[in-house]
């Protein structure tokens, strides 16, 4: 009880005021020597100093007194610290006691990153997911018929020229290959689903291609497909325009030109106005002001028919794009071979 009584008597605002005044007088009387200043600090502001002890003892006061005394003690502490800092600055001591070098680097938490291809794929998928497209995936090792025949690309079709294929070694039976595109999932999905269908299909594809700065034998593709009873070319344009705005910015202009892919009719290539020069013409867009982003088109009636649907009842559109190409354009990456070299000097930049 004695301790507590003592504490209480010194923790009144009046007692605090008295203590502060004597501390101030004492400080004024001191010379500029660091040691003496430090001794003064310990006496009043140190861990066991007079003012600190008062602050500690506040806990045992009734709540109302505690508030009043606490405020007075904190004011006193701030005042004494301020006076000390001024004296220290005047005496040439370098900075406040307990100062640290705030310019030293902090302790960082290691940051893990997704591969730039994955980041780009996720962004693209998110844009389409938000428009009601569900993400599905298909096998990378695929039947020849899904990769070609059922997509309206019969054997010897000239379009197979651009799909130099890597085949799986097997004796007899139907052809098996490394898919050259994600388009086989169009047929697989349509075979097992009654429209409405609205999917996006990301995944690795492979082509028999000599590797150089712009060609890789392994690459990602994202396929999209929407089929229903009332889907038109206008929906294709609207959806892809919306996608371009989400990925490349709300002010993007898009351009649709006629192109040919065997599994669509009409066929489309979409370009966006160059996001580097804003359509003025630069090296990135080869002075055209526009950059080709994806191929698309209305699903060919043969594809619908091959998957067991009546092309007079259903229509749809499909599109496909290369995330590595898009990542290269956006980040100014000059060589596609970086993507699978897995060099941390490259990967940690994204």
């Amino acid at each position: 009880m004695t301790d507590s009584a003592n504490g209480n008597s010194s923790a009144t605002p009046q007692a605090i005021e008295r203590l502060t005044s004597s501390a101030e007088r004492e400080l004024e009387a001191l010379g500029g020597e660091g040691e003496k200043l430090e001794a003064w600090r310990v006496k009043y502001l140190g861990r066991r100093g007079a003012l600190t002890s008062i602050l500690r003892s506040l806990g045992s006061l009734p709540a109302a007194d505690r508030r009043v005394a606490g405020a007075a003690a904190n004011r006193a502490k701030a005042r004494l610290e301020g006076l000390l800092d001024k004296r220290l600055a005047a005496s040439g001591t370098p900075g406040p006691i307990g100062a640290i070098d705030v310019t030293l680097p902090g302790r960082r938490h290691v940051r893990g990153r997704l591969h730039p291809s994955t980041q780009t794929i996720q962004e693209i998928l998110a844009a389409f997911n938000a428009m009601g497209f569900q993400t599905v995936e298909g096998p990378q090792v695929e039947w020849e018929r899904y990769n070609f025949d059922m997509l309206n690309i019969p054997p010897d079709h000239p379009a197979r020229d651009s799909h130099d294929t890597i085949w799986i070694d097997r004796s007899g039976g139907d052809g098996i290959l490394l898919r050259t595109q994600t388009s086989p999932m169009q047929v697989r999905t349509l075979e097992s689903t009654t429209p409405p269908v609205r999917i996006v299909v990301p995944g690795l594809c492979y082509r028999f291609e000599a590797t150089d700065a712009t060609h890789e034998w392994q690459f990602h593709q994202i396929e999209g497909l929407a089929v229903d009873t009332d889907i038109t070319f206008a929906d294709l344009k609207g959806t892809l325009y919306e996608f371009a705005r989400r990925i490349f910015g709300p002010d993007r202009k898009v351009r649709f030109r006629c192109d040919f892919f065997p599994f669509v009719e009409p066929g489309v290539e979409m370009a966006v106005d160059c996001f580097k020069c804003f359509g003025q013409g630069c090296r990135l867009c080869k002075q055209t002001g526009y950059i080709e982003i994806l191929g698309a088109g209305m699903v060919h009636p043969n594809v619908l028919r091959n998957a067991g649907h009546d092309p007079e009842r259903y229509t749809g559109y499909a599109f496909g794009m290369g995330p590595e190409r898009i990542a290269m354009l956006r980040h100014g990456i000059d060589d596609i071979r970086h993507f699978f070299a897995n060099d941390l000097r490259f990967l940690t930049q994204f």
Binding site: T193, T232, A234, K237, F256
Partner: peptide, 15 residues
């Protein structure tokens, strides 16, 4: 010209 044709965002049902 593809660019001259209209553009709309889906009016159909979501799966």
């Amino acid at each position: 010209g593809y660019d001259e044709l209209p553009l709309r965002v889906h009016a159909d049902n979501l799966p």
